[in-house]
Design a protein around this nucleic acid. Structure first.
Lengths: 172, 172
DNA sequence: CACAACTCGTTGACGCGTCAAGTAGTAGGT
DNA sequence: ACCTACTACTTGACGCGTCAACGAGTTGTG
């Protein structure tokens, strides 16, 4: 056992900030989803599909894009399929694989929730920040995210352009 | 209904980063607590008490310091009291109020978990960042946190000194 | 003192997340 | 063909978090 390497003062300050965001902002944001009979997980699934060219992903990719476990995806997908927001199809060439597709109803669900959700995120997190702070935050969080995601979803993510969302007409 | 105000590109990038941290780093960090038979909530409770001069807080203050709801505190406190990490006492002047105190055993629990926890946080979040990025992150997250906390826990929190922790000899 | 309004904290029901185990299908080697 | 190892996804049990309802204590008003 070696001497543990503690966080320095700045790192502790940043970590405390994370804890406040987790403990206070996220539950508040979740309320918008619950008001529509869903959870943030459901919303993340819908967004991942909407951000895909043909609105279709195999389930393992979907779990990855939505930052969730395969098991959780499986559980939450049940309701989305029942509601008709997502449809599931077997892969023709590999019997193990399934594909999820966002339906027209799913797209409408997304459009119904997005405005209130964007408003929450802005109000709780970004309205406090100067443009320079926001840029710095996007930069640092992208760096951390790329380290956590091992694939190249966040590669080349400088202060500019993480994803093209304008083509969809808004924030999801 | 007015036109919704979406997040700009930079804000979307930052928000995606938050989602990755929530969905990937936090579950990983939680594993350390589970390995010790606890949850991050328990740990947050112990830390809040340890950071208090006499290691004692009334329950509503404790919930606030640990960024959790009173109900959740009540549920999770049960195990900590059973284990002997925390003791509860009635307030002598107000029969509604109770006070939680960190015991010697609780302090040892904290010391047993802290090294691995600090290591996780550093490895998953901060090892990726340059010193300048870390400073910027601490600055922006403190700003957001002070907006979420309404009390003055984060007031005057520039890039320097959120809390004095050195007196305790390390990160919690 | 009486009584309403309020605060502090607890409890139980219900739905979610995690984990380990399971089923079904594929790939590689012999 | 067979058999092992692997991958993709699902399921169920169990413990947690949320929410609403509750009991207990206090404060304010007359």
């Amino acid at each position: 056992m070696t001497e543990p390497r503690w966080l320095d003062e700045t790192q502790q300050q940043a970590w405390q900030g994370f804890l406040v965001v987790f403990g206070r902002a996220l539950p508040e944001i979740e309320r918008t989803f619950k008001a529509n009979g869903l959870l943030s997980v459901h919303y993340g699934i819908l967004v991942a599909l909407a951000d895909t060219p043909d609105r279709t992903l195999r389930l393992s990719e979907l779990a990855d894009m939505a930052n969730t476990s395969q098991s959780r995806l499986s559980h939450r997908l049940r309701k989305l399929v029942e509601r008709g927001d997502v449809s599931i199809a077997d892969d023709p060439t590999d019997g193990r694989v399934k594909h999820a597709t966002l339906t027209g109803r799913g797209l409408r669900t997304l459009d119904a929730i997005s405005p209130a959700h964007a408003d929450n995120v802005r109000r709780l997190l970004f309205d406090q920040l100067s443009p320079e702070q926001t840029t710095a935050l996007a930069d640092t969080l992208s760096t951390i995210a790329s380290g956590l995601c091992d694939h190249d979803r966040f590669r080349n993510a400088g202060p500019r352009g993480l994803r093209r969302v304008e083509e969809q007409g808004g924030f999801r």
